[in-house]
Simulated scan of single mutants.
Amino acid sequence: MTGHRFIVLIGASVTVILAWAVIGIAGGYRLNLTPSEPLGLWRIESLNRPVAVGDLVFVCPPSSALFVEARERGYLRRGLCAGGFAPLIKTVVALPDARVGITGEVVIDERPLPASGVRKTDGAGRAIDPWPGGIVPPGHLFLHSSFASSYDSRYFGPIPDTGLLGLAKPVLTFDP
């Protein structure tokens, strides 16, 4: 293969890959590479009703110093949300007015949340502080993943529901 043909082939390949990426993003498809939920291809489905406890959702985290630090520590990936964050895939476990307590585990309205142990350090041995607990304010969601090392509301607290993108629906996923 000549040098010119090789460059054309590479250019065409890159163009096709970029086109598929744009089509995927515009079509609501996202690739999950974090262990908080199964790895693979997911789709954002419009939510045509109020969000409910138990919904698995895509949500953009707010652009704040807490999330910038989380990205610097490697808890979050870069993406298209404000602040350059990738959307989170989490389960809604508490809505406004719910009382959330955090000790060694999460307790919502006096009921322990399964698989919600709270760690004092992250995977690199760095201290990680839990959210102190309280009432979920209006317009906010408390999010959780049963993955033990998940960065979720145990650590960042309730987040604004204005970042809600929709329901998270698996398309082609697998548990490692």
Rank of each mutant, 00 (worst) to 15 (best):
A12Q: 09
A12G: 06
P132A: 13
E72P: 15
G40R: 10
N32M: 13
I25Q: 03
T34E: 13
V92S: 04
W131A: 08
R111W: 05
S46M: 12
P112N: 09
L31Y: 08
L33Q: 09
G79W: 09
G27L: 10
I135G: 00
I128E: 03
E45D: 08
G40I: 08
R99E: 06
N48M: 06
S116K: 02
P132S: 05
T34M: 09
G40A: 14
G40K: 06
I17A: 13
L56Y: 04
L76V: 11
G125R: 07
E45T: 05
I25R: 13
D122R: 04
I135P: 05
V59H: 04
S46C: 07
G84Q: 13
P138Y: 01
G24V: 13
G40H: 12
I10E: 14
F85L: 13
L88N: 08
G11P: 07
T121G: 08
N48K: 01
E110L: 05
S63V: 09
G125V: 07
E72V: 05
N32R: 11
V22G: 06
K90W: 06
R99I: 00
V106W: 03
R111H: 11
G24E: 09
Y29H: 15
P35Y: 09
G133W: 02
T103L: 00
A70G: 15
F85S: 08
G123L: 07
W42L: 15
G125I: 10
I25W: 09
T103E: 00
G79R: 13
L39I: 14
A127M: 11
P138R: 04
V107D: 10
E45M: 15
P130S: 06
G83V: 04
V100K: 05
G27R: 01
P96F: 00
A94L: 14
S46K: 15
G125S: 10
